[in-house]
Write a protein that binds this DNA or RNA. Sequence first.
DNA 1: TCAGGTACGTTAGGTCGCTCACACACGGGT
DNA 2: ACCCGTGTGTGAGCGACCTAACGTACCTGA
Lengths: 225, 225
Amino acid sequence: MDIDVLRRAPLFASLDDQAFGALTEELTEVDLSRGSTLFHEGDPGDQLYFIISGKIKLGRTAPDGRESLVAIMGPGELFGEMALFDPSPRSTSATAVSETRLAGLKHENLKKVIERSPDVSAQLLQALARRLRRTNESLADLVFSDVPGRVAKALLDLADRFGRPATDGILVAHELTQEELAQLVGASRETVNKALAEFVQRGWIRLEARAVVILDLQRLKQRSR
Amino acid sequence: MDIDVLRRAPLFASLDDQAFGALTEELTEVDLSRGSTLFHEGDPGDQLYFIISGKIKLGRTAPDGRESLVAIMGPGELFGEMALFDPSPRSTSATAVSETRLAGLKHENLKKVIERSPDVSAQLLQALARRLRRTNESLADLVFSDVPGRVAKALLDLADRFGRPATDGILVAHELTQEELAQLVGASRETVNKALAEFVQRGWIRLEARAVVILDLQRLKQRSR
DNA sequence: TCAGGTACGTTAGGTCGCTCACACACGGGT
DNA sequence: ACCCGTGTGTGAGCGACCTAACGTACCTGA
């Protein structure tokens, strides 16, 4: 397993090599292809996961089948930890957005790590606090901004996390379909498509297959407020 | 200071009497009257707070002045902890919804408590995980449900946390104005008013001054899905 | 006790974004 | 090479909710 990503993860930064070595013994590797689901909403859960490569979408399904995405998680990030501290069934489902490799860690093993090095729980607190902050932000956006604004914001967020400099802008290989992007910003696919078309029209972005190139970061930021 | 509420708080359940005694030495009492603000969005923050009595609304303000409430916190609950683990300015403002008494605890002192008894950080993790779960829930509701549905859900949530049995139903003395209730569910005051009027019409609730009596819990639950 | 602020109730009109509907473009499998 | 499924682009129509604008009922303090 490629443990480089994990070694660099802030969560384990405080571990010495020996403790880290012991940890890696406990990890289970999981590989997912696009569209396959790791767990469903309501499942019991006793593991948390690290993303080694690829992307995972965390989402909820309404009784009528509509979906809403809570977050897109990428390499180096972790998820599925909530079921551990607050022992309840999974509150979201987790599905691969692209070819994805994960490292799973059982609750009991995490506990062992925490006992050895309390810094880890400080890191976990920080990770959770950050997530809560982001979610509160999204909540406010949903109330304050219109769909184009939310789309702009989502693109900027994805750019921040997955963007790479390209010749004429920032390449954001988000791997999401417009349908998924729509579920992420809480809007219909059609409306999101129109918002994207408008941005293209204005020369702010360029569309590629499951990717976007941001050409005018400033204007996009302006629109996202 | 009335420390009964604190002694019963799960966060401190694991402390022995001596440790708890030491902790109370570090607490600062704060009293707020309705409408006065403890901190604003963007302020630096080095304290977390326990609610001894009363209620606090946590909210965000849009550039144009509109407000959105992230949560209503009541007796026994804590808030303002995010700024500690994830050292950034306050992400929300905190304002008293009613006459409120708080106990403030500085970051450094919390650290001391955690060092002595690591169970406290487990409790903190649980509290954060629960909050994150709730916020994700709200996020999904905002997308899936219409305004009446969200109002119903908010009433049920408030009933769960602040409700008391009354002769003909559950008395929920939420202390919120309809404007605040509207900000909590992400809608306009007018629309919330209409939803409430409709519920009254149907005999599901009865309105009182800054309070609601839930008469037909079943129907209200039905409507909230 | 009166004045003025604050909260509540209700209406009318406009609009953003949803649903529905369809056409096209692409890509992978037989 | 050809489907056929999946994803993308676009238009028409409609409806939930917002804004704007009032009148009324309180409560509070001078």
